[in-house]
Every structure is written in structure tokens, then in C-alpha cells.
Simulated scan of single mutants.
Amino acid sequence: MSEGRKNVQFWLMIGGAAAAVAGVGLAFTFQSPRTVSVQEGYRGIAMEQVYHRVAVANVAASNKVPEAQPAVDPAGVPSKEAYQNVQVLGDVDANEFIRVMTAMTEWVAPEQGCTYCHAEGEELSSDKLYTKRVARRMLQMTQHINADWKPHVGGTGVTCYTCHRGQPVPQNIWFAPPQDPNGPRMVGNDAGQNQPAKAAGLASLPYDPFSPYLAGDPANIRVISKAALPDRTNPADIKQAEHTYSLMLHMSNSLGVNCTFCHNSRAFFDWNQSPPQRTTSWYGIRMVRDLTVNYLAPLRPEFPHERLGPMGDSAKANCATCHQGANKPLLGVSMLKDYPVLAGPTAGDRRTGEE
């Protein structure tokens, strides 16, 4: 074989290998065009939601609601008289109380069973396990959400299953991230940017969109100015705007929607031109802050070290904790109608841990 023919064959092999690599890359880069576009605003202003059929099918499969526990005949006595140390749901009928406890076991610890919260060999009234003490507070939190945050959850409400989905620890929680050792640099603080994180949609935006906005003493989220140039009415800079976009990306991914689900594309800042979902979202942000400050963060002393985050804080909720890819958790199906006792009392000081 001549030297020239060998060279031709060599370069053909190189070209074929490059084409194969490029083909594999393209196959995993682009989604098939099986999408559906839903127009939600006036034509010409890009008020559309684009859904990929496979993603929609996956969300539907992961948001199935379990069958409700069968109804029971009333026992005729409240649970606090039938059982000891019932600090929540004490006024509920004793048989209905057991029905709710059975459902909670299915929602939170189907593999571990009752012993996830009740120590084996101990009386059911024992508070030995931290999981029981935490579960009691989570019951109070559920009641609080359903009774006091109707502007966000409406009549649909939430149950333990909304977040847990059969897992003792919800899939989507967050902890305060460790301090970035490379934050202060010679050229300035990078504000956590260029460190792609799932929470920020793997973008170059700040990797922690939660601590500044969803915890105590939150920063102002709105950073879009109404003026062409910076002025005293909007002192926020580009860095703050990028932190806001990091949170918005999280919200978009959590609900499986794009920006125009809550904003009018022609005037993102204008509430008068925004869809109703923006108001619902506004309440949702404040609800998460309330839960963090008054329910989740104070539970830190109850948890063992291995259940705390890298900075020693307890797990906290964000939009994905409940929504899990659906703009309405569990696709809008209400489980509360089957467990009305979780709607809870509207009065009282549940935030203090009392009935």
C-alpha cells in the first residue's frame, strides 16, 4: 500500500471517529422536538409556556397521590383521653387519630414503620426518639400552613406526603453552604459565582440562592429598576440582580415553568401587568420564610449531628420541597379532604410548640 493511500485512510479514520463523537454529543445535547407550546398572554409578547412531553410524563408519574386510608367508625372519645401524651390532635376522635397516624407512617416511613418515631420496647407515649418530637412539630407546621397560608396553598392545602413522598427526609431540602475559601480574592469577591450548582440551574450565577432570601432577615428580591440609569430609587447593583436571577432559576425549575408563568415579558417589574401566579408566588416566598424562622431552624437542637448541614444548621424548605417539578404540588390534587384534621385550628400559639 502506498504512503499516500495510508495517509488518506488514517485521516478517514480520524474523521469518522470525530463524527461519531460529535454525533453522540449532539444526541445528548438536543431534546427531540416533541414539545407543546401553551399561549398564556397576548400574542407577540412571548407569554408562553413550552412543555416537553417526556418531562411532563415524568412529572405526572412522580406526583401520583396514594390512596386514602379507609374511613373508620368514631370511637366516641377524643384521642387525648384514649391515649397518653397526645399533644397534637388531642381533640380528634381516637379512631380517626389512629387512621391519621397510619397514613403518616405510609407517607413518611413506609419501610421503617411505626418504630421510626416510637422507640421499640417503649410505651407509645414515650418521647425518647427525636423523630417523634420532630414529627409532632411538623404536624403543627402542617396545620399552620393550611390554616394561615391560604393565599398560597388555597383550599388544596398540604399534608406530610406533599413534601416527603414516602421518604423520612424530603428529597428537596437545603442547608447553609460552607463559606467559600476562595471568596475574597485579590480581584474582589466573586459572590459565589462560576461555581455551578444544581440550586442555581448549573448556571454561573451565585450558587446559594436560599440563604439571602428564604431565611431570617431576607434581602429585597426585586432589583429591576423603572429608570434607564441607576438612581436613588433602586440602589441594587448587577451583582444583586444576579443573585435574584439565581433564586428565580430555582423557582422556575422547581415549578417546571419559565419566567412568563409569573411575569409579563413586556414589563417584568409591573404588578398590574403580571399574571395572578405572581401574587401566589409572593405569598409562597413569605410562607417559606415563616416556616424556616418559626418551625424548621428552631428544630436544630433536636437533630443528631449527622442530620445537620455542613454549617451545623437544620434542614430547611424551598420551592422544590413541595412542588417537585409541578406548578401545583401533586398536580393540584388535594389530599386534605381525606384528612381534614390536618387543616388545623386557626387560633393559638402553635409556633411556640403548644396546642
Score class of each variant (00 low, 15 high):
1 M>G: 00
3 E>G: 11
4 G>W: 15
10 F>G: 03
16 G>F: 07
20 A>E: 05
23 G>M: 02
25 G>S: 12
38 V>R: 00
38 V>P: 10
46 A>F: 05
48 E>V: 13
52 H>Y: 00
56 V>W: 08
58 N>A: 14
59 V>K: 00
73 D>P: 08
73 D>K: 02
82 A>I: 06
87 Q>W: 11
87 Q>K: 10
87 Q>N: 02
88 V>Y: 01
89 L>H: 11
90 G>A: 03
91 D>L: 00
94 A>W: 07
95 N>T: 04
96 E>W: 10
108 V>R: 07
109 A>S: 13
111 E>N: 07
112 Q>R: 07
117 C>V: 05
117 C>H: 09
126 S>D: 12
130 Y>L: 02
132 K>V: 05
136 R>S: 04
137 R>L: 11
140 Q>P: 03
143 Q>W: 06
145 I>T: 01
146 N>P: 03
149 W>D: 11
150 K>I: 13
154 G>Y: 13
155 G>F: 12
163 C>G: 11
172 N>P: 07
174 W>K: 03
175 F>V: 12
182 N>M: 12
183 G>N: 04
194 N>V: 07
197 A>E: 04
199 A>S: 10
211 S>C: 00
213 Y>I: 06
215 A>V: 05
218 P>K: 15
218 P>R: 14
222 R>K: 13
223 V>Q: 08
224 I>E: 05
232 R>W: 12
232 R>M: 02
246 S>Y: 05
248 M>E: 04
251 M>P: 10
252 S>M: 04
253 N>V: 00
255 L>I: 06
257 V>S: 06
262 C>Q: 01
268 F>Q: 06
271 W>V: 06
277 Q>M: 09
277 Q>K: 04
282 W>A: 02
284 G>T: 05
285 I>Y: 00
286 R>M: 09
286 R>Y: 11
294 N>K: 15
294 N>R: 15
295 Y>H: 13
300 R>A: 14
306 E>H: 14
308 L>T: 09
312 G>L: 01
322 C>A: 13
326 A>K: 10
335 M>H: 00
338 D>K: 02
347 A>G: 15
350 R>I: 09
